[in-house]
Design a protein around this nucleic acid. Sequence first.
DNA 1: AACGCCGTTCCTATATTTGAAACGGCATGC
DNA 2: GCATGCCGTTTCAAATATAGGAACGGCGTT
Lengths: 248, 248
Amino acid sequence: MSVTVEKALQLIEALAGANGPVGVSQLGRDLQINKSTVYRLLDTLVRHGYARQEEDGARYALTVKLWEMGIGVVRGLSLPRAARPLLEQAAEETGETTMLAVVQGREALIIDKVDSRHPLQIFSPLGARLPIANSAMGRVLLAFQPEPVIDAAVEAFAPRTEFGIQTPAQLRKDLARIRAEGASQSCDEWQIGIAGAAAPIRDASGVVAGAFCITGPTARLCEDKLSALRTRCLEASRTISQLLGYAG
Amino acid sequence: MSVTVEKALQLIEALAGANGPVGVSQLGRDLQINKSTVYRLLDTLVRHGYARQEEDGARYALTVKLWEMGIGVVRGLSLPRAARPLLEQAAEETGETTMLAVVQGREALIIDKVDSRHPLQIFSPLGARLPIANSAMGRVLLAFQPEPVIDAAVEAFAPRTEFGIQTPAQLRKDLARIRAEGASQSCDEWQIGIAGAAAPIRDASGVVAGAFCITGPTARLCEDKLSALRTRCLEASRTISQLLGYAG
DNA sequence: AACGCCGTTCCTATATTTGAAACGGCATGC
DNA sequence: GCATGCCGTTTCAAATATAGGAACGGCGTT
């Protein structure tokens, strides 16, 4: 483990997290790193175009270089490329918001989406994270994770509303059902008023690489409608899986 | 300058640039870094969630963490927030593709856009870079850069087509005109068949922070139309500048 | 069976990082 | 108008984390 690189990464994360420029001393205090060290590392980041000093000659902020490289990362992935047309198609046909999510750490991360055109719609920006156990999108990803990850998530489970799954035992049962049925749906579980359906996408090796989700206000999505959306997710995810080379 | 961090950044860039997983030895050869060092640095990146080892237990690739943090960077910027509604509005009204660009290094970087709905439209993905001297978008940014940057760009100038500006002298004159008129336009200069107009956006301190651009096929944009789009860019960029706190 | 390449681990000389201290600039408060 | 405090920046000797050659075990090819 390279401690110097670790500090540099901490610095980048701190700058990305702050919503504005930060000073050398401030960063040193926040991260418990010596001021001189912070300065030298920032200097390195600046020289390589990752950060820049504000016009006031004091505080530092990240440049768009990180964003640009991030764009390169997702562009390099075959998943979003394959999924994009189906996101658009399903959004068009159902009139609801469609999303593509992957597992990142212990949460589900939205890496692409197509917004509904309804005046009443779900607000969830690109890059947003959702709890992995309290939503259809999260659970469909969780269900196909390795045992230890599932166990950890089940143990750490806590309901976020009074609806849907309330206990670790129910969660474990639901995950088994998802594996059996190949799709999931939920209502008012993550946030009151939001419902959604999701299905897993598999890559060429059969590993679940992401989730195809359709989400909308509970007000519009009665049980029947939600069930239809779940089927829609299944179809879309199957198509995408095939595009990725999944034979099953 | 921290050499360790520099190597780590090189590693990240190499991984982001490659369109697939790369092995330790390969990276070492490409970047001329010792295999052991590459391994240790990669290990650090993996432990912090920036990279992961592929299922084959061999090669390494970046995760979406970089993308996620990049998203945070642009979200933190006030420019895209302020510009977004006007990009949408102008795209709706003109029917052409609208873009928001900033200077990154010696090029113009597209950080947001709204696509035209014409069947014939300009292909320029988010994160694409345009030469700073061979397009309306680039020149409107270049015109307000510090002297040395302008001088360097003028010296390095080379036409990309047989249309529009052809010599460094013409470029320098055009930049002066842009500063006087406050907007620019171009036709068939970057790529044959593409025309565009652009105007600079200023932040609260009066510094040019970005460019508002409208672009479309030369086939649709005759001289008159292009001139109207230039005016449209000016209006939009003025509005955005005001939103950012620019008083002038 | 031998080879070559892979990712990984080990180890020590050494080059790098570290962090306290001091500098000059700038604002604030007395 | 002086003193104080915080800022980013620079310096430098001591400490240490890094570098990189060498070797390991695994794997596929020859």
